[in-house]
Design a protein around this nucleic acid. Structure first.
Length: 154
DNA sequence: GCCAACGTTGGC
DNA sequence: GCCAACGTTGGC
């Protein structure tokens, strides 16, 4: 089982939007970065655990989710009406992929990014690296557990 | 609003 | 294949 962090801009799509879906489950569409695509297409599996992260005005880890469907083509890429339309992606040769995730927990208090900095348990976390913009990031089991502990004690 | 860090585009 | 220009992300 692997662990991940998935970023979202809450004014576009927040943890509350995910919770509002039937079964608290939705597809994670719109990722248009090849490295992030590769993680979803090639590595993410049902059962993998996910930290949900809000970027923007109040950057914070806000809850957890679980992957419930492995990577499959992101159909929004070939929808001309979609904000994420990409004419290079074709149904027979899809460029972009997504997974389905189910929200597991929403933290009672978001765990702000600034509270994570400087913690030795998280010193190697991708999220805290300078200039790290990748929207799908691998997380270690130890980092995942550390985040959960912080969330519970917050 | 600023700006650093990246990714992409396109001329050559 | 190189690299300058440009657009985007996202923290501050």
């Amino acid at each position: 089982m692997k662990y991940w962090l998935m970023k979202t801009e809450p004014s576009t799509y927040s943890i509350d939007d995910l919770l509002a879906e039937p079964g608290q489950t939705d597809h994670w569409d719109g990722v248009r970065n090849y490295q992030a695509r590769n993680f979803m297409r090639d590595e993410m599996q049902p059962g993998d655990k996910v930290l949900l992260y809000h970027s923007g005005k109040h950057p914070a880890v806000v809850g957890t989710a679980v992957v419930v469907r492995e990577g499959y083509p992101d159909h929004t890429a070939w929808d001309p009406e979609s904000d994420h339309f990409d004419p290079k992606s074709r149904p027979d040769t899809p460029t972009w992929y997504m997974v389905d995730v189910r929200c597991e927990t929403k933290f009672t208090t978001p765990l702000p990014l600034k509270h994570l900095r400087g913690l030795s348990a998280l010193s190697d976390m991708w999220l805290l690296r300078r200039g790290m913009r990748l929207s799908i990031q691998p997380v270690t089991a130890a980092e995942y557990e550390a985040i959960l502990s912080l969330a519970e004690s917050a």
